[in-house]
Design a protein around this nucleic acid. Structure first.
Lengths: 129, 129
DNA sequence: ATGGGGCTTCCCATGATGGGAGGGTCAAGG
DNA sequence: CCTTGACCCTCCCATCATGGGAAGCCCCAT
């Protein structure tokens, strides 16, 4: 399977597949005589794994760890769960931060007439704090 | 006022002040004979404005717009409110996305024993989807 | 006058991703 | 058999906001 077909089948762009190859996230792809990368079902599963993990917001270092646990049939599920919980905490923190921003803005926006006049509590807030 | 003092007084690092200068976000700072940037109260207010806007999650292009409205005493508050509302919608979308990630992970993590055994619903999910 | 700290510019790195140039390869159809 | 178009390869560049650091100039206090 060529990189283009692997990209289509895995949902990971060819660019990113080469990048994952370069940084050693996936096992280096075998090459044809003419230096084309070739992929099999096992590679595809790795790529899909990565895509799914990315879509859950895991960072590349976290995915590196997850992949190595995934490959290890003896892994304790404890280790996987620890990574997941850490990531959940991270997400929650970022959500809380953005929620606070949105709430503040909603309040300010609510107080702003939003018409032709120049008075604006939003700008006033940005000025003062 | 030197850049270091302006940094301390505004809460924006000297590095970032130079950067805002370079990209034209703030008016170019006047210079002393020996080419040191100098800042007055008006500059400080701009820097504080930017810092506050950043802390509410506004992007640099949005801040550019906000600054120009802020400088224009004739601005219609409608324009400011429009920017704020767009940003709120953006925040809400990102929050929803991260919330979905966190919820999925919470479910998977809840189903994972987290002990010595290798069985792990988290890895299974990453494998299948 | 000298030393330490602050200022200047310039370069580099981040993380994940895409764009594009220049050049080799493969397969299908004339 | 040759051409053509669609692949593939590597290498370089850009993003966005931020920080680190080097080399060199400047200012103030001792």
């Amino acid at each position: 399977m060529n990189i283009g077909q692997a990209a289509k089948a895995s949902g990971v762009s060819a660019k990113m597949i080469r990048y994952y190859d370069e940084i050693g996230l996936v096992r280096p792809a075998s090459r044809t005589e003419s230096n084309y990368r070739e992929y099999d079902d096992r590679s595809l599963n790795e790529l899909r794994f990565i895509r799914r993990a990315r879509s859950l917001g895991f960072s590349m270092p976290e995915i590196t760890q997850l992949l190595s646990l995934w490959r290890d049939r003896q892994r304790p599920s404890r280790d996987v769960k620890a990574i997941a919980e850490r990531h959940i905490a991270d997400l929650d923190a970022r959500i809380a931060e953005m929620q606070a921003m949105a709430d503040t803005l909603r309040h300010l926006s609510h107080c702003c007439a939003g018409d032709d006049r120049p008075e604006c509590p939003i700008l006033e807030d940005l000025t003062r704090s």
